[in-house]
Structure formats: structure tokens, C-alpha cells
């Protein structure tokens, strides 16, 4: 596979949220606004990139039967680092994402890429893969955030476009499920049309 393909496959063709249906919890929970979606996506991207980098460089050092606990420790370390950095430099965003930053640990995408890609491929390829997957995740989270913020409070990234109360249900829990459901349906429709 060419380097470009490794990087770009996560964006659309194997988009973690919309195509592979991974990492549903943060995709639903933190996307009440575009900014939150973007922040969560970038935090996850950092963890993916760093854990893929480290795991692929350590793959010959870690004995096979303890690789999962070792991966979890590595991932949890980077998650805690991101958590501390965000509390320190982006306190407002860290407050609104709350628990879900810590829960990147159990995001299936991160452990999934470690096991499926980084433990088998070279360091550089793994970094590209982590970056691509992370950006794909960021893209879909931001998209869901934009849709929910626009419909729910008439704004994008906090800039009011339509004044008034908006359709409140979209910033609440049911709106998250419904927006994501329709988005996945749309992606599937487009894929079928292309084929």
C-alpha cells in the first residue's frame, strides 16, 4: 500500500465513525457543538499518533502474550498526558469534554489500530495510519458537531447564524443518535451510488 493511501484511507474510505462504526460513545456524547467535536477529535488523534508510534517501535520488544496489557498501559499514559495538558492549557474545553477525554483509553479505535496495524507495520507507516485515522475521526466528529450546533442552537463554532432558540432536541441526547443515524445512512447511500 502506498504511503498516501495509508494516510488518506482513514479520512473517507475507512472513516472510523461513519464507515467502521467505531468510537460511538464520544461521537454521540461530546458533539453538542462543533468546537467540542473538533477538540475531542484532535485529542484522540494525538493519542492515536503517539501510541501507534511507540507500539510499532516496541513491537519486537513486547512478548506476544502480554501485548494487550502493554498496549493498554501505553495508550493510558498518552491519554493521561493529553488530559493533563488540556486541563493546563485549554481548561474551558477540558471542562466541557469532561470524562470523555479519559475515556479515550477505551475507545475501540485506538486499541484497534494498535493491534491491527501498529503491531505489524513499520514505525513511519504506523504514524501515517494513526494520523489518518485520527483525522478521519476528527472530521466526522466535527461534522456531527456542526450539524447539531446549527440545528440545535443556530450557530457554528459559537457564531450565531440564525437567532432564536433552535430545535433543542438536537443538542440533547436523542438528537445525537438521530443525526449520527442519518449521517451513516447518507454515507452508505453515497458508497452504493459510487459502486
Amino acid at each position: 500500500m502506498s504511503k498516501v493511501r495509508i494516510l488518506t484511507k482513514g479520512l473517507l474510505k475507512e472513516n472510523p465513525t461513519l464507515v467502521l462504526i467505531l468510537g460511538m460513545c464520544p461521537s454521540l456524547a461530546v458533539t453538542t457543538s462543533a468546537m467540542n467535536g473538533l477538540g475531542m477529535g484532535l485529542a484522540t488523534t494525538f493519542v492515536l499518533l503517539m501510541s501507534n508510534l511507540l507500539i510499532s517501535s516496541l513491537k519486537n520488544f513486547i512478548p506476544d502474550s502480554v501485548r494487550i496489557p502493554a498496549f493498554i498501559v501505553i495508550i493510558a499514559t498518552f491519554v493521561s498526558i493529553v488530559d493533563l495538558l488540556m486541563q493546563s492549557y485549554l481548561p474551558a474545553l477540558s471542562d466541557s469534554l469532561g470524562l470523555f477525554i479519559k475515556l479515550i483509553v477505551v475507545n475501540c479505535i485506538v486499541l484497534g489500530r494498535a493491534e491491527a496495524f501498529a503491531s505489524k507495520n513499520s514505525v513511519f507507516d504506523s504514524m501515517l495510519d494513526g494520523l489518518g485515522m485520527g483525522l478521519g475521526f476528527t472530521l466526522s466528529l466535527t461534522l456531527i458537531g456542526i450539524i447539531r450546533e446549527l440545528l440545535g442552537s443556530g450557530a457554528i463554532f459559537g457564531h450565531t447564524l440564525i437567532s432564536g432558540d433552535g430545535i433543542l432536541i438536537f443538542v440533547l441526547a436523542p438528537g445525537a443518535f438521530i443525526v449520527l443515524g442519518f449521517l451513516i445512512a447518507l454515507v452508505r447511500y453515497l458508497q452504493r451510488k459510487k459502486n
Binding site: 441526547a173 436523542p174 443518535f177 443515524g181 442519518f182 452508505r188 447511500y189
Partner: peptide
Amino acid sequence: PKGMQGVPISLITAGILAMAFM
């Protein structure tokens, strides 16, 4: 409908269930 089968319709159903729980 074909495009809605599987995950999409499940998510939308979950959305309606969440509305009921509200």
C-alpha cells in the same frame, strides 16, 4: 429501506427511545 438497514435505523430507534426516557 436499504440504506437505513442495520446501524442507521438502530441509532434512530435509540434516539426515539432516548426521547421517551426524557
